[in-house]
Amino acid sequence: MNGIFSSSIGKKLIMSISGLFLMVFLLVHLTVNLMLLVGNGEVFNQAAHFMATNPAIKIIEPVLAIGFIIHILYASIITLQNRKTRPIGYSKTSSNGVTSWASKNMYILGGTVLVFLVIHITNFYWKLKFGEVPSISVNNGLTQIDDTYSLVSGLFISYWWFDLIYVVGAIMLGFHLSHGFWSAFQTIGWNNKIWIKRLEVIAYIYAIIIAVGFSIIPLYFLILK
């Protein structure tokens, strides 16, 4: 294992594993969020309460934060190192018909996702953890839980530009993953001439699920409420 993570391939492995972990997180996150579209918010409030109080989730939370930090840190290290490899650029470049736009702009796409992430955390997570959130009684008045539904729907109904930010954020993330998904498998070495086509298709499906899934939530509140 000597020096594996100082090699170019080893650094890329860190990107890949952290990226795969974040992609699993996104699926869980989306599943919970889609409950916002069900009924008048009881389902979502219960789910959010479960996520906020479950001990397993409490353990995963810091791991998730570390996952993000590592992914962003290595993204910056790799991108800076790679930029140094061509001091004099080409005066003319043309498309080769294969390289995707997303694959060439992963740092910019990731950076946009990071900006969105900061806005997103201040909008909800921060308020739920450290701010004042109205509570609601459930179980026939036996328990009081945070009314997360009102927090979310309030933001999306009152400010159209937040809806816009969330939709743009979801689309940028979708582009990031349209390349990131299959790229992560290629980095680990789980790819060959047959699987590359399959992985690319799955990558597009996954990216569309994430982009559309996260976009319909603000749009639902903007248009229907």
């Binding site: 170019s8 391939i9 294969v98 995707s100």
Partner: peptide, 19 residues
């Protein structure tokens, strides 16, 4: 190790090489 040492970059899977 030699590739890294000689100032080549790392792979970001853009596929420009195979193209």
């Amino acid at each position: 190790a030699k590739m890294d040492e000689l100032g080549f970059g790392g792979c970001t899977n853009t596929r420009a090489c195979e193209a």
